[in-house]
């Protein structure tokens, strides 16, 4: 963006400090701290079970943490009442992994749904907005189709159209490239970059697709077993000497090290001996 401040100097839109979260007695995030800046694409990566999807759900303000603090667009989410939370969520767009389109609604109705929920706009304004977003995601003319008539890539793009219908300040995308062929995936990456550049939005993407991550990311957060392993630019990640990071990049994230106690618990389903009180 011409004339814009360097991304490292831009305001912080998400600030997470020492976030700890559990599912039942199991600790998923073990004190995660990170920031997302205005207008940057932050890619969150990690192996299976690293906590990346859990972190994304917290960033989307969908879950409460066990402890730690989180500010989104300057607001401490632990202090927000229901009305302020609803107002905050209007500024966040979410494209879920499977698209999460309602099968009983047309594509256009799906895309307009947030407008019907949160605004009193004239129906014609809504229709024009939906068609504009379909144009942006290259689905012009598909508004009257049902989701079942779309391909996987088209469903992903329709989900993006719905996620950006309210011009969110922050867009969250969970595995946008999953299940797509390389050409379709690459086109989706280009769309993500265009959204950042044209709309200036911050975008948080969880992905395990390395090629996509390095193409779109301003910075990459690498999670490992609920901890932050590293946060840096794609070049910094590539050059990092850590064996664990390089294993991840070489798709050998599931390494051979085993915590015998944790492994035994996983197999037996027993409660952990520590952190059991929750």
């Amino acid at each position: 963006m011409t004339g814009a401040a360097p991304k490292k100097d831009r305001p912080v839109v998400i600030e997470v400090h020492d976030l700890v979260t559990h599912y039942g007695a199991r600790m998923i995030l073990k004190g995660v701290s990170m920031e997302v800046r205005d207008g940057e694409i932050m890619v969150i990566m990690g192996g299976s079970g690293s906590g990346k999807s859990t972190l994304l759900r917290h960033l989307m303000v969908l879950e409460r943490a066990t402890s730690g603090t989180m500010k989104v667009l300057g607001q401490d989410i632990t202090q927000l009442g229901l009305r302020d939370m609803i107002d905050l969520r209007k500024k966040l767009g979410v494209a879920f992994q499977g698209g999460a389109l309602f099968s009983s609604m047309t594509v256009g109705e799906n895309i307009m749904l947030p407008l019907y929920e949160h605004t009193d706009l004239d129906p014609q304004t809504m229709r024009i907005m939906a068609r504009m977003k379909l144009e942006v995601v290259n689905l012009a003319g598909f508004e009257d189709l049902m989701p079942s008539e779309l391909s996987g890539g088209m469903i992903k793009r329709a989900a993006v159209a719905r996620a950006i219908i309210m011009d969110p300040r922050i867009l969250f995308m969970d595995e946008p490239s999953a299940g797509l062929d390389p050409a379709v995936s690459s086109a989706l990456d280009d769309l993500i970059l265009r959204l950042r550049d044209a709309m200036g939005m911050s975008i948080c993407v969880v992905t395990h697709e390395l090629e996509s991550a390095f193409k779109i990311a301003d910075r990459i957060t690498i999670l490992d077993r609920g901890d932050i392993l590293f946060i840096g630019t794609p070049d910094e990640v590539r050059a990092h000497p850590s064996e664990r990071i390089q294993n991840l990049l070489n798709r050998r994230a599931e390494d051979d090290t085993i915590d015998p106690e944790e492994y035994l618990r996983r197999l037996t389903g027993d409660e952990p001996l520590r952190n059991a009180a929750l």
Binding site: L121, I128, M129, M132, K133, D167
Partner: peptide, 11 residues
């Protein structure tokens, strides 16, 4: 100007 403003211009 957001999308609703642009939509008003389009209409």
């Amino acid at each position: 100007i957001d999308s609703s403003g642009v939509a008003s211009l389009v209409e």
